[in-house]
Amino acid sequence: MSDLDSNQNRRSFLKYLLSTSIVGFLASVLYPVISYLNPPKQNEVEVSSVLAGKISDFEKDSGKIIRFGNKPVIVIRTEKDEFKALSAVCTHLDCTVQYKKELGLIWCACHNGKYDLTGKNVSGPPPRPLEVYKINKQGENIFVSKKA
């Protein structure tokens, strides 16, 4: 009786162990697979457009650096209330440029390079103009995208 019982017990324990561990196994395989299939937030491989912020985030006659992929882009709201977006990487030695209110220009602190608001290098060492990005307004939102 006891022998049969213990056998029976062992068997039911084994069944229990087997079924629970199969469930656990399925969970540990399916969990990564399902999470993998769940699309990530950034659902494109390459950045093509970035939300720079709301119009109200930008003061008139000021500039702000935003991140575009791995590159900084300077978004400027001019005195005349126009929005401009340009690469913020100085073409001289890759410093990050800034908007200089007094001059109404884009200025690089490293070697006093200056660009006008169309990105043209107007003085100092920069050899080339800054790359221009496109501004798209959607309601209150300002989007920056690469020029096609």
Binding site: L14, L17, L18, S21, G24, F25, A27, S28
Partner: peptide, 11 residues
């Protein structure tokens, strides 16, 4: 979990 399952399978 996989080891437990393997063990159970072995038994």
């Amino acid at each position: 979990i996989i080891s437990v399952l393997s063990f159970a399978l072995y038994l």
